[in-house]
Design a protein around this nucleic acid. Sequence first.
DNA 1: ACCTGAACACCGTTCAAGT
DNA 2: ACCTGAACACCGTTCAAGT
Lengths: 186, 186
Amino acid sequence: MPGTARVDARRNHDLLLAAAREAFAEHGTDASLRDIARQAGVGIGTLYRHFPTREALLEALLRSRFDALRDRADELSQAPAPGEALLTWLSELAAGSVTYRGLPESVMTALRDDRSQLHASCAAMRAAGGRLLDRAQAAGEVRGDVTAAQLLALAAGLAWAGEQSADPVAMIRQLLSIAMQGLATR
Amino acid sequence: MPGTARVDARRNHDLLLAAAREAFAEHGTDASLRDIARQAGVGIGTLYRHFPTREALLEALLRSRFDALRDRADELSQAPAPGEALLTWLSELAAGSVTYRGLPESVMTALRDDRSQLHASCAAMRAAGGRLLDRAQAAGEVRGDVTAAQLLALAAGLAWAGEQSADPVAMIRQLLSIAMQGLATR
DNA sequence: ACCTGAACACCGTTCAAGT
DNA sequence: ACCTGAACACCGTTCAAGT
């Protein structure tokens, strides 16, 4: 809503987003909302007025990235090798999950709850991943008994395991390698 | 410490364990400690006197199960088919993770922090799993580039993904099937 | 229309006072 | 030796009062 509201409201909105980005990066997606309001120099009530839930805050920060991942999946559906395209997409999905600790859990929760402000963009992302999966299955490169929901759960699980590890990037890379071999048709 | 302390202390110890078991089962491993003390009919200070940390409480509830999983791994190292033995063990490991929501995270945290009261039994379990893994790798049935730490992270990640899902048992079964194929030598 | 912060109902954790 | 609960420093969330 740029330009539509009072200038002070718009300013607070932006200050809150900047503070939230920093807090989520430092403390994960369950960072203190009070802290975020404090960092933004704004009353706690103002935070709730702009962002009624934690998910609304996450949505504002992440919607563009999730949308980009959806577009990326659609773009990769044109790629020559469907199996490799799926691997590429999964890698990008898992890589993005490391920005905020707890993000895989937020995504899985949002997918389960269609009232979550994060639901729409996550579901659109899952659907796009599903089309990529369908194509790889149709080409006979990926096991036929895997659903889009399972694919997302798998990616989230590996990303979560990365979070728990000393070297998240290395762990995710290795687990992804195992998962991809597991998804392939024998 | 049965028989060693005052009878009232021993009684409180047992009441606390029973309350904790129920609370963890209902609300996950991050259930309210105050609630547990309340349910046990005991002051919050008494809970802290018997169990100085949440991990101490988990350890008391889970040590025997983790020890059993360690023994099970050693037993399975005698099985004829090393690859299948590993699959069996991983299944049992993952199945046990569903008792308390949050348990995979508690295990991964305990493995990372050697001051955790849960560390010893988890590390012993991981080591036993590692021996099972070594044998499967030596038999040429499992990829050589996988470590025991990665194996545990993988199992925990799949169990976590199960927790996030509508039907945890079905999800874990499917993800485990993918993971096992991914671990196999081509 | 928007902002503020006190208020409420919770936490985890410690520790002085009791038996 | 053990138990208790008030006390402290935090939460998330709501809402009456202000501008």
